[in-house]
Amino acid sequence: MTKLTKYLGLAPLYAAGLIAGSAMAQETIKIGVSIPSADHGWTGGVNYFAAEAKKRIESTYKNVQVSVVTATSASDQANSLEDLVATQQIKALVILPYESAPLTDPVRQVKKKGVFVTVVDRALTDSTIQDLYVAGDNPGMGKIAGQYFLDKLGGKGNIVVLRGLPTVIDNQRFDAFMAKIKGSEIKVLDSKYANWNRDDGFKVMQDFLTRFPHIDAVWAQDDDIALGVLDALRQAKREKEMWVVGGGGMKEMVKRVIDKDPQTPVNIVYSPSMIGVAVELTALHFVTKLPMNGTYIVDSPLVSPENATQYYFPSSPY
């Protein structure tokens, strides 16, 4: 009897031990996500989709924790990496680097600690550091736009180009676009930087309109810039004269495509949701124990009225 009570008394302890054992086997996996702060529309979208991925993953897998850290500059981001490793002891890092070159070495240091590294959007200068690379297709974006201009203009016409900021991404888009229209009779009257924002898109387009009496189409390659361009066209009352192709898949612009606005016939997606893809794949790497190493290129599809609803996220800030 006494023996029985003894056993009975021990039972909860055994149970507790079993639970502890299983918890040990399922140790907590911390994923650190390092992204630029919401300093313009697109990075605002990155912040939104990172937060959505965190919510989904943490509610689905009880043993996975995601901490999202934003940075205001490249050096700020490098500092935050040190914090993630030292204080949070992350098992995996998902990083959308502010700039490629200055962050290559800090990420290498993280990698040396045995952390699984996922690089998003902007490639590091040394591609051997990353375990997984998730990116949009920047050259593809330029190529698809170039093809659309060739088709829609019938290989002939005057266009102006508004570029983003002088970075690798912008060069890839621009070079691919120029390569695609090379040899045709499409004339690029000029191209200027509009810094991926509406105000500069407005100003640069105003000046293009002053300068060129005849423009058939505008390649703005970014939706914030495109919105500025549209206002400049309206002010000059030249909106019937030309059409505008932006890029990114901002909800306002996708909505215009859905509504068959002749001024913005198509859009090209370069979705900030790629950060979500990256975080999900990284989580799967640990949860499924299947290697997710490699390169994952998120397509940059052409959005036309036929398929636009599929790319319309009204609740996203972008």
Partner: peptide
């Protein structure tokens, strides 16, 4: 002018 404001304004 543009009817919008963001952190880049």
């Amino acid at each position: 002018r543009l009817g919008s404001a963001s952190s880049s304004t």
